[in-house]
């Protein structure tokens, strides 16, 4: 029956891990700018690619 001690402890430890992740996220400033990253991720990384894209756009 002592398995319950083990399971509960594990669940608490997991919860604490998530909590620590949350604290880290706040500390690193993720919650200060919740907009720019959402736009940034849509940009293409390589400039060459984007200029090709713009060419195809113009061709259309």
């Amino acid at each position: 029956m002592s398995v319950i001690y083990l399971l509960i402890s594990i669940s608490i430890v997991v919860a604490i891990c998530f909590f620590a992740a949350f604290v880290r996220a706040v500390k690193s400033g993720q919650y200060e700018d919740d907009y720019t990253p959402s736009v940034r991720m849509l940009f293409d990384d390589e400039l060459k690619k984007t200029s090709e894209n713009s060419n195809t756009n113009q061709n259309q």
Partner: peptide, 25 residues
């Protein structure tokens, strides 16, 4: 979004700039 894009690509204009990050709000 163009503003974000160009300002975060400043390093392409001047190699002396190593990074730039925009906070839109």
């Amino acid at each position: 979004s163009s503003c974000i894009w160009i300002l975060e690509n400043l390093r392409k204009l001047r190699p002396e700039i190593s990074a730039s990050q925009v906070n839109f709000h």
